[in-house]
Computed example of a mutant assay.
Amino acid sequence: MNTRTIPLTITMIAFALSAVSGCTGSANSQDERTDTTQSGEIPMLSKQLEEKAAASVTRIPEDVRQTYAQAIETVRATGIEKSARQVGDTAIDAQLSGWDGKSVKLSDLWQEGPIVLMWYRGGWCPYCNIQLRAMQQSMDKIENAGAKLVILTPELPEKAKETAEANELNIVALHDKGSAVAQKYGLVFELPEAIVPAYRDKLKLPEYNGNDAMELPLAATYVIDKSGKITYAFLDADYKKRAEPADVIEAVKTAAQQ
């Protein structure tokens, strides 16, 4: 399944940013944690994702679940988690815009301070929607730690707007057209043949992304410091696993001190 083929108020232009109007170390899987909340306030994202996955067991046939599980392992077997940009690598710069028409250059942001760069796959993905809501809930903590949140997505700007509205998010995600930036980070993979029909015909991926490419980016999260260096990377082939906000916040605190 591999080819190399974003409020300082809560106004987000794909990142918590009011000025312009998706820990050092790499995490390739979610660490084990106790069933608590972050700072006693925000439910842990991993717990929410696990509950969503458990609920799917009762409504998705076993054979279908096995097909998706195998697809995840197919992605992992390509080595994409290791071949994508890692901690210590130089971040990729890009000029992007969201559905509000505002343009943002990534390096202009990280030169002001650390950024959290996060991809979500699309509004059709329930795990992405859970993560987006969790990150918005964590925005104050991310900002207080010294960073801006930058969210990228391959879905069309109008679809990203629908995703924000459906989840009651104050987010304007930047459009990574054709996953061009994700490609440069080494995050893009081809969908395994067995699940292409579901993504193409049921989830309507071409309608969301505006092209017929049967590919997606990993739901990756990076922290990038002021020098443009990656200081934290969450890369997991399993789309049900996402960077824990508490870990991201700790990574931001470390990056802000460098």
Rank of each mutant, 00 (worst) to 15 (best):
T3G: 10
A147T: 08
V172T: 12
I195W: 10
Q95C: 02
K241N: 10
V57A: 05
Q258S: 13
F15K: 14
Q183D: 08
Q30E: 01
D93A: 11
A251T: 02
D89L: 12
A243M: 11
L117E: 00
Q66E: 06
A53W: 09
N28G: 03
F234H: 09
L132W: 05
Q183A: 13
I224P: 00
E250S: 13
Y127V: 02
L205V: 04
T9L: 13
T34W: 08
M118C: 05
T67F: 12
N167T: 02
Q48F: 08
D201F: 10
A198E: 02
M214K: 11
E62Y: 13
Q95M: 08
D176L: 04
M118V: 09
D35E: 09
A69Y: 09
G113K: 10
P245M: 07
A233N: 06
L187V: 01
L218V: 07
W124L: 01
E112G: 10
V87Q: 03
A147R: 13
S46P: 05
K161W: 04
S46N: 12
L17H: 07
G101F: 08
S107K: 15
P197C: 07
L203Y: 12
T34A: 13
A160H: 04
E41W: 09
G25T: 11
P197A: 08
G123W: 13
E250T: 12
R33Q: 01
I249H: 06
P43D: 04
A180G: 04
A134C: 10
E244I: 13
I171C: 05
K229D: 00
V104L: 14
E168F: 14
E215N: 10
K52F: 10
Q131T: 11
K148H: 15
Y239D: 00
A255R: 06
K204Q: 11
F189V: 02
N2R: 13
K141M: 10
A251Q: 01
I80W: 09
E51R: 15
H175W: 14
R133C: 01
G178E: 00
D238H: 13
V104E: 02
S138C: 12
N211F: 04
P61G: 07
E207Q: 14
P126I: 07
E81I: 10
L205Y: 06
G88S: 03
C128L: 03
D176M: 04
R59K: 14
E215T: 09
D100H: 15
I42M: 09
